[in-house]
């Protein structure tokens, strides 16, 4: 008797859950909760669409999506990296997007049309302004090893070989200059006896602490350290240099989605002036549509777009880069 009541209850709860899932938009986000949650809430109040978000890293989310398979409750995959989105697309997890949406961003729309770019981040060089002057820094990241040798910075250079953006940069270098030159560059970097860090904040903190003097990182980390009151230098290489490689964040709609209309509205909202302004202001990233007021720490959008080499970011030779890094004993 009691058992039956219990079973009925469970059945009702399951029904309720199923019903609720029809009504709410489910987002799997590799983007950090602390950064994007206010925007999600804003979307919810403005559209009246109920949203639920699962946060994690790109890799965790991607692995979870694959384990869930066709039973996934997710509607939208919102990621930090073009690499993760490219993987999701090539594994057939994403559904092609409409042209209205894909026409919005100024650049970086992937050929697969499986996801839409939302914001832009740039690789930069972070340095200790008390030790190094901006005008003496090299114009290309390829010259970084020679520069460091000349300035006697052996053992005082940091890098993050395990971090996805660093690996993207190496892949970009291979795409631009081929594996041979990239291998030379990596070997020259290794000869500097660089200190490896697991994360960019850890590396920037090491610059702050005087343990090292410079390191290649992503621009917004420097912006955040500066906003927190730490004095760190930020250097861009010359236009088109792989040391300024563009890192694109984006979002796609999953094939398992049962809420196509709401999912489309969400992606449209991310690219709306309001959504883009949020990223340019609070988050410190570059918007990808016109007419957004940039943060004081950022370059004007046209300048920023010109900084990076133009590549197919979904098809960066990441496997080749990883193989090379492992071959050289860096990974």
């Amino acid at each position: 008797m009691q058992l039956r009541r219990f079973a009925t209850l469970i059945g009702l709860a399951a029904l309720g859950l199923a019903f609720a899932q029809q009504q709410t938009l489910t987002i799997y986000s590799g983007r950090g909760q602390s950064l994007v949650e206010p925007l999600v809430k804003q979307f919810q109040t403005e559209t009246g669409i109920r949203v639920q978000v699962r946060y994690g890293t790109d890799a965790q989310i991607l692995a979870a999506l694959q384990e869930e398979g066709s039973r996934s409750p997710a509607d939208v995959f919102w990621a930090n990296t073009a690499g993760a989105l490219g993987q999701a697309a090539s594994k057939g997890l994403l559904r092609p997007l409409g042209d209205t949406l894909l026409r919005q961003p100024l650049a970086f729309v992937p050929a697969s049309k499986a996801w839409v770019p939302v914001t832009l981040r740039l690789r930069v060089l972070a340095y200790n302004p008390q030790k190094l002057k901006p005008e003496e820094l090299p114009a290309s990241i390829l010259d970084l090893p020679r520069f460091a040798q000349e300035k006697g910075l052996v053992g005082r250079v940091g890098w993050t070989p395990t971090y996805s953006s660093f690996q993207d940069m190496v892949a970009g270098m291979i795409a631009l200059y081929g594996e041979g030159r990239t291998r030379e560059w990596l070997s020259a970097m290794k000869a500097l006896n660089p200190k490896g860090y697991a994360s960019n904040p850890a590396m920037l903190d090491a610059i702050r602490a005087g343990e090292i003097d410079l390191g290649s990182t992503n621009h917004y980390y420097v912006v955040r350290f500066r906003r927190a009151g730490y004095n760190l230098g930020l250097h861009y290489f010359k236009d088109g240099d792989p040391g300024n490689l563009a890192l694109v964040t984006g979002a796609g709609i999953l094939k398992t989605s049962k809420n196509l209309v709401a999912a489309n509205r969400f992606l449209t909202y991310l690219l709306s002036p309001k959504g883009q302004q949020y990223f340019a202001g609070t988050v410190g990233e570059y918007p990808l549509v016109k007419g957004v007021v940039a943060d004081a720490h950022l370059l004007p959008l046209e300048e920023a777009l010109a900084k990076s080499p133009q590549l197919d970011f979904e098809k960066l030779p990441l496997d080749q880069a990883l193989r090379l890094l492992r071959e050289l004993g860096i990974l």
């Binding site: 602390s34 978000v53 994690g56 904040p201």
Partner: peptide, 25 residues
């Protein structure tokens, strides 16, 4: 992170969410 109900944020997921973006304070 992966098995909690949607939108169920705990102390540890919040710590992760902030440190991931270098927001230590």
């Amino acid at each position: 992170l992966l098995l909690a109900p949607m939108g169920y944020s705990t102390l540890s997921t919040r710590v992760f969410g902030y440190t991931q973006e270098a927001m230590f304070a």
